[in-house]
Simulated assay, not measured.
Amino acid sequence: MRRRSLLIAVPAGLATLAACGDDKSDSSKASDSASPSASATSAAPAPKIVDGPLPAVTGGTKFGTKPTVAKGTGDPSKDLAVKTLIAGGGQTVAENDYVQAHYLGQIWNTAKVFDNSYDRKTPLVIQLAEGSIIDGWRYALTGKKVGSRVQFSVPPTWGYGKEGNAQAGIKGTDTLVFVVDVQGTFNANSSAKGTKVPQNDAALPKVGTNTDGKAPSIDIPKKDAPTKLVANYIIEGDGDEVGAKDTVLVQYKGVFWDSGKEFDSTYGRKALTSFGLQQVVKGWGQGLTGKKVGSRVLIVIPPKLGYGDNPPSGSGIKKDSVLVFSVDILAKM
């Protein structure tokens, strides 16, 4: 099983996407490795941020390369020490954004590396929100720009507190040192990025191609609904392909074929969502598998791959409904 960072929060499946009668989830994978996830909602006050001391980065000094970090000397700061080693020029990270980053974490006084994403060759995507990640990350990365390498030390107060993290070998007295390469940031204004694909089939819905973070239009044709799954690019991104077992971060909008009425949307909630493709209705899992990150995809789901005669209670979805979605694949998690 591929190791995954404990920084990754368990995906929150929406009622209108969760697969019925399927108890399989991705949550058991979230603790496969030792790393600094949020253990409990913190009540600690905001830290004072200082510029040191911090141990030297002695190798892998380029952005995106695995760093080597010396052991801390002397006593670490009791405040949050933060230093930008490489200043990026991209979008500014805000609290509650989802950040995509490579990182390495080690213990101050031993230089023991307890986790890093570079060896997994997969960057972390996680929300900088209270309860989702340790407070040290929230405060150190907020305000930084995409393309930046940031080093910071986290005392127990803004890490794991007096309990530490036994799985990671972190004691309640340990100060943690991180080097983080910020590769991307996503929020409610994020959209697909890529090349527009012609929509020439008059028998299929036409989806808007705006990339301003606003919900795209979905125009349903006055035709019979397709009986097979449709999963077509509207905007084709250039990112990695999504695998059948991956977890994705998305913007989406869903409407009924028969009325064009919207029944669910991240745009309306002004909040992105994430889920594993094995946790949702088959039409979503099959429709997004093989598609590229950065894309906008039209998915038309016939009842047999949606909810059939057993729609979720309170969803407003009728039996045997054909569902139409516009999905922006922002990142793999």
Rank of each mutant, 00 (worst) to 15 (best):
T266W: 04
N187L: 11
Q183W: 10
K228P: 04
S295L: 07
P198E: 11
G159P: 02
N189E: 13
T289Y: 00
T195Q: 14
Q279R: 09
G254P: 03
P216L: 05
G243A: 03
T227H: 11
V154F: 01
A231M: 04
G254A: 15
G243I: 04
A215L: 08
G172F: 12
Q183M: 15
T266A: 08
L229F: 10
T266N: 06
A215R: 10
G243C: 01
V280D: 07
T209P: 03
A203D: 10
Y252I: 05
D212Y: 02
I220Q: 10
F256N: 09
G254S: 13
T247M: 06
G287C: 00
L277Q: 09
N165M: 01
D174E: 08
D240T: 15
Q278T: 14
D240G: 13
N187V: 07
A166F: 02
G161L: 05
G254T: 04
T175C: 06
I234K: 11
Q199K: 04
F256A: 09
F178T: 12
P198H: 12
G237A: 08
Y160C: 11
E163C: 03
T273V: 14
V207C: 03
N232H: 05
Y160K: 05
A225V: 11
G285H: 04
S190Q: 08
K292I: 09
G213H: 02
T227A: 15
D181V: 12
K270P: 01
P205Y: 02
N210P: 00
N232T: 03
K253C: 02
A225F: 11
F186G: 08
A225R: 09
T211M: 01
F275Y: 15
K261M: 07
D201L: 06
T273R: 08
G283C: 05
D264F: 05
L288Q: 07
K292E: 03
L249K: 12
S259Y: 12
T247G: 09
K196S: 14
I220S: 12
D181N: 11
T289D: 03
A244M: 13
G164R: 09
V293E: 06
V180G: 05
D224K: 14
K261V: 13
W284R: 02
V248Y: 05
A192I: 03
K282V: 09
W257A: 01
K291C: 07
D201A: 14
Q278N: 13
S217Y: 00
G159Q: 03
T157N: 05
A188F: 10
S295A: 02
K245V: 07
T195R: 12
E236C: 06
E236A: 15
A192N: 11
A231W: 02
D174L: 11
D219Y: 00
K162P: 01
G164K: 11
I220L: 14
D224S: 15
A188L: 02
F186T: 10
G194Y: 07
V280E: 07
P221E: 13
P155V: 04
P156F: 06
V242Y: 10
Y233C: 05
N165E: 09
G194R: 14
T185W: 06
Q167L: 10
G172M: 10
